[in-house]
Design a binder for these strands. Structure first.
Lengths: 136, 136
DNA sequence: GTATCTGCAAAACATTTGCAATTCT
DNA sequence: AGAATTGCAAATGTTTTGCAGATAC
């Protein structure tokens, strides 16, 4: 996704496309590693030397409010962000720490036990050892 | 679960049953509300006036290490604990804040997309509006 | 020129750590 | 006595808040 596409995308979702916002969204979209605020900040501060963490926090909150980014909680003290807003699962490798996405569909058994409840967000995460770490 | 049963249970899991540990586990088992450290501390400090939050943290970490309690991350800055160590889902109501348990079985579609990965822990949580809040 | 956005510094929380006092065997 | 446990106080780390200056419409 290019800066111009991102700019249009942000406008479409009611967000004014400031330079910082474009850069932060660009980072999220092009690095599907579910980064933390700290990672995003450290990566972007080279390119935007005056960037502050406050702006990263503000911007990500804005993205979450406008539903173009979702929050991921897998570990304590480690809020992560994902530009993919569709429901999907996350697998975190306990050895290498990498996070993989996986496909998820709501199960009938869940729907049954939550009969009468209105589902707004679904989150799935699994911890274990990834294929790569098992082989090495 | 009575104090004596808890004492035996802790011993069985290699944990020395101190007074504080028994009380904390008792609270967890008898209040299936997935409390935070702060909630547990505030509830027990009446009964155990010298109790410190450090002890609550230490004890819960010990329980997690010994796999008699699981950690639940649903919100940021809000680590919760659950004496039920079996895999099950949590539904958090966005209106009343209450957390409900629901049954979950690993889906084939998840197993397929994680082929070759070793699953150690599975976590499912859903946010929405609970039956009770929808009716009122 | 008025709204919004950014970013610094300080505040607010949750959690961890070091260590001394206490408790248990 | 010796080992484990507890709890205070301080440190750490993350996120939020207040506010002043910069930027955009």
């Amino acid at each position: 996704m290019s800066s111009i596409e991102i700019s249009t995308f942000l406008k479409k979702h009611g967000i004014r496309p400031s330079f910082q916002r474009i850069k932060i969204y660009e980072y999220l979209v092009n690095h599907k590693t579910h980064p933390t605020v700290d990672t995003i900040y450290k990566e972007l501060v080279n390119e935007l030397p005056t960037l502050s963490k406050t702006t990263v926090y503000n911007t990500l909150s804005l993205f979450v409010e406008n539903k173009i980014t979702q929050l991921i909680f897998i570990e304590d003290n480690e809020t992560r962000y994902d530009a993919d807003y569709r429901t999907h699962g996350h697998f975190k490798c306990l050895k290498c720490g990498k996070i993989y996405d996986f496909k998820v569909e709501t199960k009938e058994t869940i729907e049954e036990s939550l009969n009468g409840f209105e589902i707004k967000e679904e989150h799935y995460y699994i911890k274990g050892i990834c294929k790569n770490c098992k082989q090495n």
